[in-house]
């Protein structure tokens, strides 16, 4: 069952080609990890999927529907950012509750209940009344995941969700993501965490110079890398 089909995605920034004709398919419930060197177009790719970047060319179909209504599309596709981007003036609970309340028309009580349940799910029950500044990086990122989940998306996008975190906080965020994947959520994760990719991904894609040059299940990806550029990449990030 295909959830997402992208064909021929292209995007240039000035003279720099970020995406050079990318095709991508994602099945319902599939967990896809995208890795690659910096500047290879990974972030641009997932930002094109919820149209935070407008692709110059190509088509994206999600759930059988071409994305025409931007807001409707984004309500069904959750996104987690490298820098968390929580709203600093709101508590953890309000951060999660605001979108369902304002966009889905939930009452304050309903939205708060949804927020509390999600905080519980990301192991942050009891932190509901804290503002982001009172939470650690790992806790903020888990609130950000809960905030995206509050819209009940059919697909979750993660843009280097652990790159801004201290090493000891990476695990708690990855654990939440693994659990989310096990619960059947369709996910596309841009990350350099190869341990996570091995543990949680159904397929791993490798990007280089705006193209997906390799795509394989974890075992094959690591044990028999299907592309010479990938061999070097894995050497560099696993070798040190």
């Amino acid at each position: 069952m295909t959830l997402l089909t992208a064909r021929g995605l292209a995007k240039r920034f000035g003279s720099f080609t970020a995406l050079d004709g990318v095709d991508l398919d994602l099945n319902r419930g599939e967990r896809l990890v995208i890795c690659g060197p910096s500047g290879s177009g990974k972030s641009t790719l997932i930002r094109c999927i919820n149209r935070l970047e407008e692709p110059d060319a190509g088509t994206i179909v999600i759930d059988g529907v071409p994305a025409k209504d931007l807001q409707a599309l984004r309500r069904r596709v959750g996104m987690v950012f490298q820098q968390f981007n929580l709203f600093p003036n709101l508590t953890a609970r309000e951060n999660i509750a605001i979108a369902p309340r304002k966009l889905l028309g939930l009452s304050r009580a309903e939205a708060d209940a949804r927020a509390e349940a999600l905080l519980d799910r990301v192991q942050l029950a009891g932190h509901a009344d804290k503002p982001p500044a009172a939470l650690s990086g790992g806790q903020q990122q888990r609130v950000a995941i809960a905030r995206a989940l509050a819209m009940e998306p059919v697909l979750m996008l993660f843009d280097e969700p652990t790159s801004a975190l201290d090493p000891e906080m990476i695990r708690e965020v990855l654990d939440v993501m693994v659990e989310l994947g096990q619960g059947g959520m369709s996910m596309i994760v841009v990350t350099h965490e190869m341990g996570f990719a091995r543990r949680a991904a159904d397929r791993i894609g490798f990007m280089d110079q705006g193209r997906i040059v390799a795509m394989a299940p974890p075992q094959q990806f690591f044990d028999a890398p299907p592309h010479p550029r990938l061999v070097r990449f894995l050497d560099n990030i696993l070798g040190h």
Binding site: Q71, R74, F81, L86, F87, A99, L103, R147, A148
Partner: peptide
């Protein structure tokens, strides 16, 4: 980042500015 977070949740641009950024 704040604007993008609001847009990604599904806020229209003007609502993101009025309801998320302005406060």
């Amino acid at each position: 980042g704040q604007l993008e977070a609001a847009l990604a949740l599904g806020f229209a641009r003007w609502r993101a500015v009025l309801e998320i950024l302005l406060p």
